[in-house]
Amino acid sequence: MAKIDPSLYLHNQKERTPSPNLGKDEFLKILMTQLKNQDPTNPMDDRQFVSQMAEFSSLEQMMNMSNSINTLVESQLVSPVIKYSHMLGKEVTYQSYDEETGKETEIKTSRVVAVSQNEGWAILELENGEKIYADAALQVNDPAFEETEDK
């Protein structure tokens, strides 16, 4: 009597997990397999082929556009200059320090005229010539809002 090879049992087979993503490489593999295995007496209609290539081109363009938008959004979120650009024209109140002793001196208020960055930190350049880190601001006021409120 012939023996059955135990490696052929179903419970010994590795489970294949399909990929949820179908990218352009997979699409091209499917298309090439389709072309290789088509019936030579009844080849694929050229209109179907053109239609599939157009779909592939459209898919690739949408993927490129999505990647470009993601890159743009990420670059805007990361840049401290863009993150704090809304501070331009605002008045900030901050604690000033004596450069020699490092001790607190007084609380000052000045208008933001520029935003720059240094080693990834946002620097607010003020109308009075001083520069402070954005997170050193104690209070932010909008002078334009206060002027319309007074009228």
Rank of each mutant, 00 (worst) to 15 (best):
V113H: 06
N128T: 03
E55I: 07
L10I: 13
K103R: 08
D25F: 12
F27M: 09
N118C: 01
Q95T: 07
E106N: 13
S85F: 09
L124S: 00
S57L: 15
S57H: 10
D45V: 03
R16W: 10
A122T: 00
E125A: 03
Q52C: 01
M63L: 09
I30Q: 13
K24E: 15
G23S: 09
V81N: 03
N21T: 15
S116G: 10
P80Y: 10
T41W: 12
Q76I: 14
S7V: 07
M44G: 01
K90M: 04
N42Q: 14
F56T: 04
G89Y: 09
A137Q: 03
E100R: 05
T33Q: 14
S51H: 06
L72K: 05
V78R: 08
T105C: 05
M62W: 14
V50S: 06
V81E: 11
T17N: 11
E127Y: 10
I132D: 04
Q95Y: 06
E74A: 03
E106P: 02
S116P: 05
A122L: 06
L10G: 04
K83N: 06
V112F: 03
E149M: 07
A114T: 06
N64G: 05
S116K: 07
E130I: 00
Q38G: 00
F27Q: 03
K36Y: 11
T33A: 10
N12H: 09
K36T: 13
K83I: 01
L8V: 12
K151V: 01
M53A: 01
E26A: 12
P20I: 12
E99Q: 11
S110Y: 13
Q61Y: 15
T33Y: 12
T105Y: 10
L88W: 11
S19Y: 14
M1A: 07
H11W: 14
E127K: 14
K131G: 02
K3H: 14
E106H: 08
S75T: 15
P43T: 05
Q34L: 11
I4V: 11
T93M: 08
T148C: 01
D5P: 00
K90W: 01
S75M: 08
S79L: 06
I69V: 15
K131P: 01
E74Y: 13
N128W: 04
I69M: 07
L31I: 08
Y84F: 10
A2L: 11
A114L: 15
E91A: 02
L126G: 04
D142L: 00
D25Y: 15
E26L: 14
P80D: 01
A134W: 09
L22W: 14
I132C: 02
K29D: 14
D142N: 07
E55M: 12
K24L: 09
L31Y: 15
E119H: 11
S51D: 12
L8D: 11
V140D: 03
N42F: 08
V140E: 00
E26Y: 13
Q139T: 05
E125P: 04
E127F: 07
D150R: 05
S68F: 15
E74D: 11
Y133T: 06
S75G: 01
E147M: 03
K151F: 11
A137D: 02
S110M: 13
E55K: 15
Y94I: 04
A136K: 12
S7M: 13
N70Y: 11
M63S: 08
I123S: 05
E60K: 10
P6F: 07
E106T: 06
H11A: 03
T17C: 00
I123L: 10
D142T: 02
L88T: 00
V50I: 12
W121V: 08
